[in-house]
Design a protein around this nucleic acid. Structure first.
Length: 510
RNA sequence: GGUUUCGUGGCCGAGUGGCUAGGCAGCGGUCUGCAAAACCGUGUACAGCGGUUCGACUCCGCUCGAAACCUCCA
């Protein structure tokens, strides 16, 4: 659907900053800027990485559908995160490099590639720009300098720290996450390098690198590396401007990461840079966050191959995607085999419904009476029923991207399709077309579900199946059930399911 | 301890001040050579205790329980 007119839709999004749903009004429509915190590439992507990627893919896809010109920026963090419990504030990437005797950039490249491969398989659209922190050291140094010039940072022994206490005299550090500065001052745990800070709540903008530290860059304050909140501030404003529309990320980044981004931009630029803050909730396993540090994560590769001890079977990328979209992005989502299996079956039903729709015979005009063909009997409930379904999909998306409600509406569509196939309801040609459009738009374009069957050999496969089913039909007509069942069982082993209906047999792949 | 959020039927998961979410599983039926699929029917679920209200699962308070963040994590 082409549609600048779609922008007339009133899209409401939940802004973490105000904790309310707000009408989405881009700063300079139709252009829209969106920045999302991407992965730190020092490990294989797991289910936790899939959540924000899919969540903001949904946002991206819907904004595009509405006709906005979106520039979507998602960073790759390949430098900058300090490891607190190791000496010298060693960089995470560098730690892995030493263990595996590889160059840090080799590690970053390897895992970034892995990330792309798995996000592609989840049908996550690639962002417009995927900047790397290591490629923006100059921008980060310039930003540190601006913050120093503005008087909200201080240098100690080649490191530069943000002066939270001074910043708080004019601005409100903690407004995004609801923290109170006094608590932060007293409750922040003692860390290495603490003695250099004036206050416990201060955070590093630039860290001096010890001689053995391999990831290092020259700066006005000596050789070192950027603090971990800095890259997002530097890269988001570089590519989206000083004030842009949407900043997204996981809820676990709210504090201190996003809180500090706000402070950095305020200090360096003179105003905040983000209009709408969006945060996705966590994926949990046994009620606990699935994360690297807890060691309870399951990688996407393990899901796809079924090779993790907690998995009863393999789950396809689309099952994972559908599973995530069945929950609202701001709810926690608990992993379990039962939930995943339910998602798998539900998705299969949805896709089967779409296939049935494509095969639905058009209603035959009733026999001519007096030279006039009677029009097909309209659906019970009136012609508007399919329109209502489409409206329900839009309403759901406009209400803070409520994908579970979209899915519920699509299931209602499947019910109607199947009833039509069973001849208990009649769909007009126009209604059939509209249903097809709803599925194409919402299931495939916006929810980003990919119909995994098909491909180059689809035409050959269709022809072969037609032939096989014709032969089987002959054996059925002579009540040769042995041959009939033999064909069905053999096909089942190839994951092709034969369904015998009143109008003959049909087939589907799993 | 503080901040933020949450507690919905066997499981997952929406939503709302009075009217069916939806999926999966179960049960009954229709269809079918058998099977699968599909369709129809089927569940007085909203942590507990108070309060506001004609009426609360939905608003307010308290209690209990859970999670995220306060240290790298999506």
């Amino acid at each position: 659907m082409n549609s600048t007119e779609n922008m007339d839709h009133q899209l409401y999004i939940h802004n973490t900053a105000s904790r309310k749903k707000e009408l989405f009004e881009p700063i300079s429509p139709p252009f829209t800027g969106m920045y999302v915190c991407g992965p730190t590439v020092y490990g294989d992507p797991h289910l936790g990485h899939a959540r924000p990627a899919i969540t903001f893919d949904l946002v991206y896809r819907y904004l595009l559908h509405l006709g906005y010109k979106v520039r979507y920026v998602r960073n790759i963090t390949d430098v900058g995160h300090l490891v607190a419990d190791l000496d010298e504030g060693e960089d995470k990437i560098a730690v892995r490099a030493r263990l595996e005797q590889l160059e840090p950039m080799e590690i970053a490249q390897y895992y970034a590639d892995r990330y792309f491969i798995y996000m592609d398989s989840l049908n996550v659209k690639r962002p417009s720009i995927e900047p790397r922190a290591s490629g923006h050291i100059i921008e980060q140094i310039l930003m540190v300098q601006k913050i120093l010039d503005a008087g909200y940072a201080y240098e100690v022994n080649g490191s530069v720290y943000f002066d939270v206490e001074k910043y708080s005299r004019t601005y409100e550090y903690g407004k995004l996450s609801g923290r109170v500065l006094e608590d932060l001052m007293s409750n922040t745990r003692s860390l290495e390098g603490q003695d250099e800070k004036r206050n416990a709540a201060d955070f590093a903008l630039w860290k001096n690198a010890q001689p053995e530290h391999i990831m290092r860059w020259p700066s006005p304050w000596g050789d070192g590396f950027p603090g971990w909140h800095l890259e997002c501030s530097a890269m988001s404003t570089k590519y989206l401007g000083d004030y842009f529309d949407i900043h997204g990320g996981g809820m676990d980044l709210l504090f201190p990461h996003h809180e500090s981004e706000i402070a950095q931009c305020q200090a360096a630029i003179g105003h905040e840079s983000v209009k709408y803050w969006l945060h996705n909730n966590m994926v949990t396993i046994n009620g606990q966050k699935m994360g690297k540090s807890l060691g309870n994560f399951i990688t996407l590769e393990e899901f796809f191959t079924g090779t993790h001890a907690s998995l009863k079977q393999a789950y396809s990328p689309m099952t994972i995607r559908f599973f995530i979209l069945q929950a609202h992005y701001r709810s926690t989502l608990d992993f379990s085999n039962e939930a995943l299996q339910a998602a798998e079956k539900g998705l299969k039903k949805l896709l089967a419904g779409y296939e049935t729709l494509g095969r639905l015979p058009l209603p035959l005009p009733l026999p001519k009476q007096g030279g006039e063909a009677s029009p097909p009997t309209p659906l019970p409930g009136g012609e508007g029923r399919i329109c209502d379904l489409r409206d329900a999909c839009y309403s759901a998306m406009n209400d803070d991207f409520n994908s579970p409600m979209v899915i519920a509406a699509l299931f209602e569509g499947v019910r109607i399709i199947n009833s039509a196939a069973d001849k208990t309801e009649i769909l007009t040609e126009a209604e059939t077309e509209m249903l097809k459009e709803i599925f194409d738009t919402f299931l495939f374009e916006i929810l980003g579900i990919k119909n995994e069957k098909g491909g180059d050999n689809q035409g050959v496969l269709d022809g072969l199946m037609q032939l096989i089913l014709a032969i089987r039909q002959k054996s059925r007509e002579t009540k040769d059930w042995g041959t009939s069942d033999q064909i069905r069982d053999a096909l089942q082993k190839l994951h092709i399911t034969v369904k015998d209906g009143k109008e003959g047999s049909s087939w589907g792949t799993e």
